[in-house]
Amino acid sequence: MSKKVKYYYDTENLAYHKIKPQKRKKVGYALLFLIASALFGFLCFVVLMNTPYFETPKDKIQAREIDNMKIRYSILNKKIENIEQVAADLEERDNNLYRIYFNSAPISNEKRRGIIDIERYKELEGYNNSDLVINTSKKVDGISKALAFQSKSLDEILKLAKAKDKLLSAVPAIQPVKNEDLRHMASGFGYRTDPFTKAKKMHEGMDFTAKTGTPIYATGDGVVKKADNSLSGYGNHIEISHGFGYLTLYAHLSKYKVRPGQRVKRGDIIGYVGSTGRSQAPHLHYEVHKDGKVVNPINFYYGNISAAEYVAISKIANQENQSLD
């Protein structure tokens, strides 16, 4: 097939002339075609690269790593949930068992976990799985703060437990005179007849009758505050400060066995029964003070008497008889 020849009409000479093609235009058209083909091919490549139907080996490796990461984060979140449950159980016992037992106020969840600083997670934003990573990081930070706070709380509980031991040792919990040494209990706490004026007045302690020289025992751990006869009517007397607001007084002693400033333990002999001061017969006048106020000593005899003995002493103590001082 012969190549087509193109002609043009010359109006001046009234004749047809043959059109001779220019080589430059041919080359230009060829280059333009090549550039357009290359651009089209590049666009197709970009489109294919961004579709899930075309993956390079590197893309497949990255996809597997992302899937593995998601699985590991899922396992991590389950472990965190288990730890959170254990921490919640600890917090529950801390607030509703330990702190109630030691008479301490419970701690709120807000105080345990503190305030979360949202700004610290800014660097984790902008990625495909940012929500997963940020939420997991928040959980880890929250449980870390809770466990750190719980550790401090348990240290506080330990201190409270040690203080509780001291409190239990300090509370005046026994009779100051042993039952086998008693003749009888002459008078209890409350309004009684004064042996000298015969008028009724408040008797702020309990009277235990016993022979002169009968040992008197400290009813709780403490420090001897006084061992003298400075209080009118009490004769030779001892005051012991037990701490926690407790103070005990032992009056009408024949002699002392302790001195001011000396530490004593519950059950230590501190002096001996006598009849010094305003007293009608050998006996021990015993008082218990709590936070500066006198209280009925019978409420504290749980350390060395049985229930039957307590009932018997309580019955005698409540009789409106005459006191011995």
Rank of each mutant, 00 (worst) to 15 (best):
Ser2Ala: 10
Asp117His: 04
Ser144Ile: 06
Asn179Tyr: 01
Pro52Trp: 10
Gly142Arg: 12
Ile316Leu: 14
Ser108Ala: 14
Lys138Tyr: 08
Met202Gln: 13
Lys198His: 11
Tyr7His: 11
Phe45Leu: 12
Ala307Leu: 08
Lys178Gln: 12
Ser187Cys: 07
Gln262Cys: 04
Leu168Gln: 09
Leu168Thr: 09
Pro215Trp: 03
Lys70Cys: 10
Thr51Gln: 08
Asn96Gly: 03
Arg64Lys: 15
Lys139Asn: 10
Tyr16His: 03
Gly245Glu: 03
Tyr301Met: 14
Gly114Met: 01
Val5His: 06
Asp94Thr: 03
Ser275Leu: 01
Asp194Cys: 06
Cys44Met: 15
Tyr250Lys: 02
Ala163Gln: 15
Gly235Gln: 06
Arg112Met: 11
Ile116Met: 11
Asn95Ala: 04
Leu247Thr: 15
Glu12Thr: 11
Leu32Asn: 10
Ile80Met: 12
Lys200Leu: 10
Arg278Glu: 14
Gly205Trp: 01
Ala199Thr: 07
Ser230Ala: 13
Phe45Val: 09
Thr276Ser: 13
Tyr16Ser: 07
Val311Cys: 03
Ile305Gln: 01
His17Met: 08
Asn128Pro: 02
Ala186Gly: 13
Ser230Asn: 13
Ile71Cys: 05
Thr248Phe: 05
Lys122Asp: 15
Gly188Leu: 07
Thr248Asp: 04
Met202Gly: 01
Thr193Asn: 04
Leu48Asp: 03
Asn68Val: 01
Thr214Gln: 02
Gln262Asp: 04
Glu119Trp: 04
Thr214Pro: 04
Ser169Thr: 03
Gly243Val: 07
Ala170His: 01
Val223Gln: 09
Ile66Ala: 14
Thr212Val: 14
Ser232His: 06
Leu43Asp: 09
Ile61Trp: 06
Tyr302Ala: 08
Glu92Cys: 02
Lys162Phe: 07
Asn103Phe: 09
Ala210Thr: 08
Ile107Ala: 00
Asp94Lys: 00
Ser275Glu: 09
Gly271Pro: 06
Leu182Ser: 02
Pro21His: 00
Val5Cys: 01
Leu34Ser: 14
Phe208Val: 01
Pro172Gln: 05
Asn304Ala: 09
Gln280Val: 15
Asn68Gln: 13
Asn321Gly: 14
Ile35Val: 13
Asp194Leu: 04
Glu81Ala: 15
Asp94Leu: 08
Lys145Ser: 14
Asn13Gln: 13
Gly303Tyr: 02
Phe45Ala: 13
Gln62Asn: 14
Ser130Met: 02
Arg93Glu: 05
Ile298Lys: 07
Val288Arg: 00
Asn296Met: 05
Ile269Phe: 05
Leu247His: 01
Ile174Arg: 11
Asn82Gln: 14
Lys139Ala: 06
Pro195Leu: 02
Asn299Trp: 04
His203Phe: 12
Asn68Ala: 10
Lys79Pro: 00
His285Pro: 12
Glu180Met: 09
Val133Leu: 14
Ile80Glu: 05
Asp131Ala: 13
Ile143Ala: 00
Tyr8Gln: 12
His203Leu: 03
Gly243Gln: 07
Val5Phe: 03
Gly303Phe: 02
Asn299Arg: 07
Lys166Arg: 15
Ile19Gln: 12
Asp165Ala: 11
Val47Cys: 08
Phe244Cys: 03
